[in-house]
Amino acid sequence: MAMITIGTIKRGLITFIRPSDVSLKTDRRIQFVKTIIITIFSLSVFIGVWWGLSLLIDTPFLPPPDIVFEALLDSFIRPDITTGRTMWDNVVTSSIRVAWGFALAFVLAVPLGLVMGFSKTVESFSKPVVEVFRPIAPIAWAPLLLIAMGGKVGPIIVIFIGVFFPLLSNIIFGVRSIQPILMDAARTLGAKRGDMFIKVIIPSTVPYIMTGIRIGLGIGWMCVVAAEFLGAVGGGVGQYVQFKTEVNRFDQVFAGLIVFSILGLSTTELSGWVERRVMKRMGLK
């Protein structure tokens, strides 16, 4: 039978050797170089406009880029005179806060989301509570939490609240999006409720969990800024920015903003990369 002879040839041969593959590779390389050139160009235009504006307006609130970049470099090399911390220390402090808040949200949102999506009873019990809390901006909790739980734990809880709800909604949505026919197939193969949960619901929700993580981390970085503005203890990039605003060092304020941009961007990129790796490993493309 034709099929069987094809079947005995190793899979790689059939799926991967195509004459068009070679040109596909060069195509992709050209595309990559193009993207890089455009990125460099767009950033240059941005910095040019910034420079022009700072010269034109001439206000201390908008320092020119060269001064800002100098302040940025300096902040990493030299400890701050008043706090004794380098920017690096601040980055580490803020990152640890985001990591804790995120981890807390993850261990609670994942099981709760899976169970809420799966069980009608659990859902109808927890939904009213979740819906009451969801619309409250996480930052609105910050002043209270910082007083109640202190400058160490408070910020972590603010981040936790920020990450928890989007992650939860995404997971519930993921469980709801499972194709009913996959559950039918599992049932005809003998799956009981527990099997269904472990072997069908969880794996098919993984992509939604990954997306939730990516969105959650982005929100985590926004929340850490707010929490640090409002009085976290022990530094952090947010505190640095706030402090520098108070002492009119706007070059250093902008340096802090750039650090936030880089941190947020690299977190998103990193989680995007992990997401793609996981999807590929699971055979989901």
Binding site: A185, A186, L189, G190, A191, D195, L284
Partner: peptide
């Protein structure tokens, strides 16, 4: 009773072998 679906209904995260072994895992 075994069922075969028009839409295939394979588990996309499982390899061919793991799809076939699904029922045996449960048993």
């Amino acid at each position: 009773r075994g069922m075969v679906f028009q839409e295939f209904a394979l588990f996309p995260w499982r390899s061919v072998r793991k799809n076939i072994e699904f029922g045996m895992e449960l048993r």
